[in-house]
Write a protein that binds this DNA or RNA. Structure first.
Lengths: 254, 254
DNA sequence: CGATGTATTGAACTCGATCAAACAGTGTGG
DNA sequence: CCACACTGTTTGATCGAGTTCAATACATCG
């Protein structure tokens, strides 16, 4: 694929919220055609980023918010002594970058998990557009609210759940994420490493690995590297919601 | 104090962002007098809530956001099996209730830690006002951004820090919270119980108690029930930031 | 092929939880 | 005024889930 292809692709995509298949979960959902056109003019599509590249990082000047268009990202923050915590995984239709409003600089870092592209929305232009399109404003609040809910759920997980619940909850969330996007809800193809999962869940990588094996031995999952098949949705939900009945899990034996 | 007093107090306060001493940290900071008057007309001040009362709770219909005017609150969420996690403490000038935009219902519960009052802002009216007053919109985003930053920091704490760092970080945050409000930064009068602190930090109440004693024995703090005096800011920061040098802490001995 | 990054498994240890009991303030009523 | 209960807090002793350290397996790629 030549550079030329890339550029052309680029231009044709640029004004295409209408043809975007994540438009139905994203900021523009429910927007009327006319408003969509208006909004489209302020959206910039950047060249896709490769796995491991950063959309922006902690401390960067804040000028835009972004919608994930394709691929997936992790959000991380760093502590004063250099340790990192992943605070979220985000997928097509999700909004990232709202952390920048407070001090005009970003507090978290957004890094791609695979090749990913983004719709960039300049804050200045957005504020003007929001004034003209009330629904856009409302949708924006909805997406922020969704980010806040994700964070609330992660805090609950990190503060109160044991390791089994954490992993089960994570898999349930991944599953319903896929379902919302129209994919199969029982076949998960993880874009993140065990290391990322462990960090996100506040666990050691070994614990995640062991739990996956245990789940597999108890016919809850089928684990093949990054491909995970949910064999028993009911049991998995049982673990995630800590329902004692379905907790008939055996150690290490099949 | 009679009922009459209460009502009068009430009315006179109602249009008084100008005279409110938390106005400089809250939504209205930097607003021009004219805009302030406009905004004032859409703000409702409710009768103060007593300690333990709820401003709203998970599942309630979402119609307003609130600024804490006086007192303090905790935000909690509940897991499917009924366990609660405190995800934040909020103080005068802070915004709560932004969790409701996603599904028009609240995901978290806001409960007062002491007698507290709130400025209620109807979402519908706010959206209209924001259109007319661009700065108001910007301030609103700033406060949301602040909430997100708080959450990011708590996730980092819950995911990566050991118990000593958690407690030290909490005290540092409380201290700078007080300082920002113009109070002494080394004399903390906690409005929350040990139980709340422990829950917030993802620890057992006994662990918090033991750590407070240890800190006291090492001349970092002076603990007298809910009154905590920071005797050694440098050391406390050292623990919070995990700097090995200042970690010369002895067990159980003075 | 060896080399590298990623993942699994095993064994020992540790931090913080849990269980249990005592202690300290605060109010209540006799 | 003191006995009583009640709630919140401290302290002690024990235990276990999950970490850490270490070794091995596995896949991908030069």
């Amino acid at each position: 694929m030549s550079n030329l292809d890339e550029v052309v692709d680029f231009k044709s995509i640029n004004n295409s919220c209408k043809s975007c298949h994540s438009a139905k979960f994203c900021l523009v959902q429910n927007l009327k055609d006319k408003d969509l056109m208006d909004f489209n003019s302020i959206v910039k599509r950047r060249k896709p980023l490769q796995r491991g590249e950063r959309l922006f990082q902690s401390g960067d000047v804040f000028h835009s918010v972004y919608i994930v268009h394709s691929g997936s990202v992790k959000i991380t923050i760093e502590s004063s002594d250099g340790e990192q915590q992943i605070t979220g995984f985000y997928f097509p239709g999700d909004l990232v970058g709202v952390d920048g409003f407070e001090n005009s600089s970003h507090v978290y870092t957004v890094e791609t998990l695979d090749t990913s592209s983004f719709c960039e929305i300049s804050v200045k232009q957005f504020e003007a557009a929001a004034k003209k399109i009330p629904l856009l404003q409302q949708q924006f609040f909805k997406l922020i609210s969704r980010e806040i809910r994700h964070e609330q759920e992660l805090m609950l997980l990190l503060g109160r759940m044991d390791s089994r619940r954490r992993l089960a909850s994570f898999l349930v969330a991944m599953s319903s994420q896929l379902q919302a996007q129209g994919y199969s809800s029982h076949s998960i193809n993880l874009s993140m490493t065990r290391h990322d999962i462990a960090n996100y869940l506040g666990l050691a990588i070994e614990t995640v690995s062991r739990l996956l094996t245990t789940f597999q031995n108890n016919d809850v999952l089928d684990v093949m590297r990054r491909n995970i098949t949910i064999k028993d949705q009911r049991k998995l939900h049982g673990i995630a919601e800590n329902r004692p009945e379905e907790e008939c899990m055996l150690e290490k034996s099949a």
